[in-house]
């Protein structure tokens, strides 16, 4: 699959607005402003995706949602276990019950954050494309980064050796809390999104990135 610079720019713009929406809601929940880095739309070979996340054995928390509708895809919010505990602590106003392990309450707080982030993105995408996106309830996992990612990529892998990631990084205050939010459209879903955005032209006109 090939993309023009204009297409990448539009995806990035959708990402900026979506993460802006999400950051506003998150800030009101946490009672503090959440600076967001400029989102990246990255087109990576599948084999490099995990490396880009800090290595396959990094212990992370991942919250996954399926997105159904005319342009299906997958959303995954990944953060290191320490960051996950700092974030849930901020949300719940209580210290972790067991360091290095997440209680049911902490898991559900993090799942809620993922719902909010996803809502921010999907609303932005809906506004731009007039397509509807229906997220599934979130599923939670705490394991190696590689293991969490490969199930997601398996679906993309049927069609392509590359995955497009619309990535946003969140950082909050002096704790240096950071999380990685990925929207991974299925290849067909991506095609639909680009068409709806009005930037998809014929293949012959697109230059390869």
């Amino acid at each position: 699959m090939e993309f023009t610079q204009a297409e990448m720019d539009v995806l990035k713009e959708v990402g900026t607005i979506g993460s802006g929406n999400a950051a506003t809601v998150l800030a009101s929940m946490l009672g503090q402003r959440i600076p967001i880095t400029v989102p990246e739309a990255r087109f990576l070979p599948l084999s490099e995706v995990v490396t880009a996340l800090g290595g396959p054995e990094r212990e992370v928390v991942g919250i996954l949602l399926g997105v159904s509708g005319p342009a299906p895809g997958t959303i995954i919010f990944l953060l290191g276990i320490e960051d996950a505990q700092i974030l849930s602590q901020k949300l719940l106003g209580a210290p972790p019950e067991v360091p290095g392990q997440l209680s049911e309450m902490e898991k559900s707080a993090l799942s809620e954050v993922t719902n909010i982030l996803s809502g921010g993105y999907l609303n932005a995408l809906s506004q731009f494309t007039s397509l509807t996106f229906e997220p599934t309830p979130p599923a939670f996992a705490h394991d190696m980064a590689g293991a969490l990612i490969d199930a997601v990529l398996a679906e993309v892998g049927l069609v392509s050796d590359y995955a497009l990631f619309i990535e946003t990084n969140f950082t909050a205050d002096q704790d240096g809390l950071s999380g990685h939010f990925f929207l991974i459209p299925s290849p067909d879903g991506l095609e639909r999104i680009l068409q709806a955005l009005g930037v998809r032209r014929t293949w012959e006109n697109s230059s390869k990135i």
């Binding site: 599948l46 396959p56 590689g146 990529l153 398996a154 892998g157």
Partner: peptide, 22 residues
């Protein structure tokens, strides 16, 4: 991921973070 390696002893082959992969 999605790779195959072959080699002769001595040595160790490794793969990291298998999830749904085998």
């Amino acid at each position: 991921m999605a790779q195959t390696e072959v080699a002769q002893a001595p040595g160790t082959l490794a793969t990291f973070g298998l999830g749904s992969c085998v």
